[in-house]
Amino acid sequence: MTKKIQYSDEPIGDFRIVADFLPSPDELALRNESTKITISLSSESVAFFKQAAAKHHMQYQKLIRQLLDDYVTHQKNH
């Protein structure tokens, strides 16, 4: 850039203050502690989850994890 910007004291114009909408660092932390496991699933089940995950543009492991978490929540409430 060879051209210098010239600043002035002219009014900027109408503006408004926007409330802070970004999450706090505490909210960015993982909500649930995770435990890594090894599990064997049928090829048919894995293929099903991979296809469903691809349709929703997400990872199939995340889809399986969400299904298990929803199941646990449902069982705890009964």
Rank of each mutant, 00 (worst) to 15 (best):
56 H>D: 13
75 Q>H: 10
35 T>G: 12
51 Q>P: 03
9 D>G: 06
7 Y>T: 10
22 L>N: 14
67 L>M: 10
31 R>T: 13
20 D>S: 06
52 A>V: 11
26 D>M: 04
49 F>Y: 11
36 K>G: 14
74 H>P: 05
62 K>C: 10
40 S>G: 14
22 L>V: 14
27 E>H: 01
50 K>I: 04
30 L>N: 11
76 K>A: 15
43 S>L: 09
56 H>C: 09
3 K>Q: 15
56 H>L: 14
35 T>D: 13
72 V>Q: 07
77 N>V: 05
7 Y>C: 00
55 K>R: 05
9 D>K: 05
3 K>W: 08
60 Y>R: 06
54 A>N: 11
12 I>C: 09
75 Q>A: 03
73 T>W: 12
46 V>P: 01
61 Q>E: 14
43 S>A: 15
26 D>Y: 00
45 S>R: 05
11 P>V: 04
77 N>G: 12
67 L>F: 07
10 E>D: 10
62 K>W: 04
24 S>E: 03
43 S>Y: 08
53 A>S: 12
76 K>G: 12
34 S>H: 03
24 S>Y: 03
75 Q>L: 11
24 S>M: 02
65 R>N: 15
47 A>V: 00
74 H>K: 08
31 R>N: 08
78 H>V: 14
12 I>A: 15
26 D>F: 05
44 E>W: 01
42 S>C: 04
21 F>C: 15
10 E>F: 08
7 Y>G: 10
22 L>H: 12
2 T>Q: 05
11 P>G: 03
53 A>I: 02
65 R>S: 15
58 M>F: 04
43 S>P: 06
35 T>M: 14
72 V>N: 00
19 A>W: 05
47 A>G: 06
53 A>P: 01
24 S>W: 00
29 A>R: 09
62 K>I: 08
43 S>C: 01
17 I>Q: 08
57 H>P: 04
11 P>Y: 04
61 Q>P: 01
23 P>W: 07
31 R>K: 15
33 E>D: 12
17 I>P: 02
72 V>C: 07
73 T>K: 13
66 Q>I: 02
11 P>W: 02
56 H>N: 12
72 V>M: 00
27 E>M: 07
77 N>L: 12
47 A>F: 03
14 D>K: 11
53 A>M: 11
29 A>V: 09
1 M>F: 06
3 K>T: 12
3 K>R: 14
27 E>D: 09
32 N>F: 07
16 R>M: 05
2 T>E: 09
78 H>C: 13
64 I>E: 04
16 R>W: 07
66 Q>K: 14
44 E>A: 04
12 I>N: 10
52 A>H: 06
53 A>L: 09
46 V>K: 10
52 A>Q: 05
8 S>K: 01
69 D>A: 00
9 D>M: 08
11 P>S: 07
74 H>S: 13
17 I>C: 07
23 P>Y: 02
77 N>S: 11
70 D>K: 05
60 Y>T: 04
24 S>C: 09
32 N>D: 10
6 Q>R: 13
57 H>K: 08
48 F>H: 11
51 Q>I: 06
28 L>D: 12
72 V>R: 04
26 D>L: 02
52 A>C: 00
24 S>T: 15
14 D>N: 12
25 P>K: 00
4 K>L: 11
40 S>K: 13
70 D>A: 06
69 D>M: 03
6 Q>K: 11
44 E>G: 02
